[in-house]
Design a protein around this nucleic acid. Structure first.
Lengths: 227, 227
DNA sequence: CAACGTGGCTAACATTGTTAGCCACGCCGC
DNA sequence: GCGGCGTGGCTAACAATGTTAGCCACGTTG
């Protein structure tokens, strides 16, 4: 029970059965998005202000340092007053995570919309950039202990959809996402050897998955191993 | 400073330069281990008892639930008495993590020693099994917030070495490790879609990396894509 | 002008890790 | 035998955490 029951997941098993666009895309040769982008949750103006401040503070001092009293301090008020605008610290985290998922999902969908030549490479680059730009937020979004059940319905699925769109296969999509997340979190946590050239680590994975994608999807759009 | 300065890392950049065994292995065609297994840290008998209890409790109630008072309760004593045997809760976590790294590293090295036919497949299977057998310990070992600098010198490098041994290339090794960690932590956290067949997700990644390994190491030992 | 919702405050509580200080017990040297 | 002392337990207490209760000033609205 420690990690709760997760009802929302990233990387759907593919588009709903029988969707015509998935096979008959007009312009791009890979499937078109079929998941709707969930509308962001409504917050009071003051609540939004608090969440913004929390986000800035989060990047400064990390998830553990982000305490209700410090957050209140940064806003020129006392901790209990925060509860006039947010029900709990956990709700604040949910808001931050939803922010993060919306941003990262937007970036991934955007990357796929632009680059049709090398979707997997574009996806990985975008994923990595998004994480490096907001490391603490990325850590929070992917924290094991997070109460994932409270996140906006469909948000995680929408944010993860690009991995399916880029590979055309749900298991390859999950494997690619796993690689991206694993590499990013290990990079953020400084777990690779000091002198390592991480660009090449990402490239090694990208190359492997591009090849696997070509193999599972002959005549598809992913460019032949380009390295 | 939130995540500390990591001085020990997993997956070394390869064996020390000039090591003869790396190129001229006698029996197996892939490199032999060159990193020494660090001796476990010494603990008092009572300290070891505490650590064992902590480990059992960890799997029951998770890292966040594992509090000094609950641990003391489980041992029939009071929280402050724990400090007669361990300097801090953080030191306890370090001990648990070292336990975990030693076990997982042992399993990985063992797997490579047995199976020379499909080292990458064996490695991934072993990694996954080890994590699924002790999910909370795995979470702790790979937690972002962990003070990694205090871990026994060389332990992480030794535990990660098999990834290099199996691939023969440091960047491919890091990418493979990233995939393994990413997939495992996402599986443990229940972040894949409910109905997903995770065996196939692992297989998809394994296949991609085996092919990449063959490509970067022609005539090597990894078996040709066997699905 | 009275009523009331909004949004701040202080005081306080439980839980966490942790420290200080006390004491019972068993072993060692005389 | 016995005094001293280290070992390992205890209670009391502190600071920091999330959170609740209860108070009050202010602006809007009937």
């Amino acid at each position: 029970m420690a990690s709760g029951v997760a009802t929302n997941r990233v990387v759907a098993d593919g588009p709903p059965a029988g969707d015509p666009r998935a096979a008959a895309g007009s312009k791009a040769a890979y499937p078109q998005p079929t998941t709707a982008r969930p509308a962001p949750r409504d917050h009071t103006a003051r609540a939004a202000e608090i969440i913004d401040t929390a986000r800035a503070l989060l990047e400064e001092i990390g998830p553990r340092g982000l305490t209700m009293r410090k957050l209140a301090d940064a806003l020129g008020m006392r901790a209990p007053s925060l509860y006039k605008h947010l029900p709990s610290r956990s709700a604040l985290e949910v808001a931050l995570v939803e922010h993060g998922l919306d941003e990262i999902g937007g970036a991934l969908h955007g990357a796929l919309a632009k680059s049709t030549a090398d979707p997997i490479g574009a996806l990985l680059d975008t994923y990595r950039s998004a994480g490096l730009a907001n490391p603490q937020l990325y850590r929070l979004v992917t924290a094991s202990s997070f109460p994932r059940g409270q996140i906006l319905d469909g948000l995680e699925a929408w944010a993860g959809e690009p991995f399916f769109l880029a590979t055309g296969d749900s298991h390859l999509a999950q494997a690619l996402w796993s690689f991206a997340h694993g590499t990013l979190i290990l990079e953020l946590d400084g777990r690779f050897l000091g002198g390592s050239d991480l660009d090449r680590t990402w490239q090694a994975g990208a190359k492997a998955f591009k090849a696997a994608c070509d193999a599972s999807n002959p005549g598809g759009v992913t460019s032949p191993a380009s390295d």
